[in-house]
């Protein structure tokens, strides 16, 4: 089963640029200008929302093109997720012994 999960992971990672085919945002995930346009104002909470300084905001790396950014983001994200589980396994194991 393990091998097959990695095969699927590889195939879908290869297909990652397909995720860039649309510019449309998800419903309810609009930028602030959208509210200004539709409602005539930006709700206070949304206007003042403190967003954290995400290092790879919107899956983009400034110096790279869209497709390379998206590929690299996919790989970085996947590696970080693996690292978290390896770290948890280490912590759990250390506590057990």
């Amino acid at each position: 089963m393990k091998k097959r999960v990695f095969i699927i992971l590889g195939i879908l990672t290869a297909l990652i640029p397909l995720g860039l085919l649309t510019d449309s945002p998800a419903w309810g995930e609009w930028d602030k200008e959208y509210y200004k346009k539709i409602l005539g104002f930006i709700p206070e909470g949304i206007e003042k929302a403190k967003e954290i300084n995400a290092p790879l905001k919107d899956y983009s790396l400034n110096s790279l093109g869209d497709i390379s950014s998206y590929y690299l983001s996919a790989i970085i994200g996947a590696v970080l997720i693996f690292m978290i589980f390896y770290f948890l396994a280490k912590v759990f194991h250390a506590k057990n012994s």
């Binding site: 999960v5 992971l9 297909l15 990652i16 998800a26 998206y70 996919a74 994200g77 996947a78 693996f82």
Partner: peptide
């Protein structure tokens, strides 16, 4: 988990 991350990027 990584697979879940990847499919969420496929808009």
């Amino acid at each position: 988990s990584a697979l879940s991350f990847i499919i969420m990027m496929l808009n």
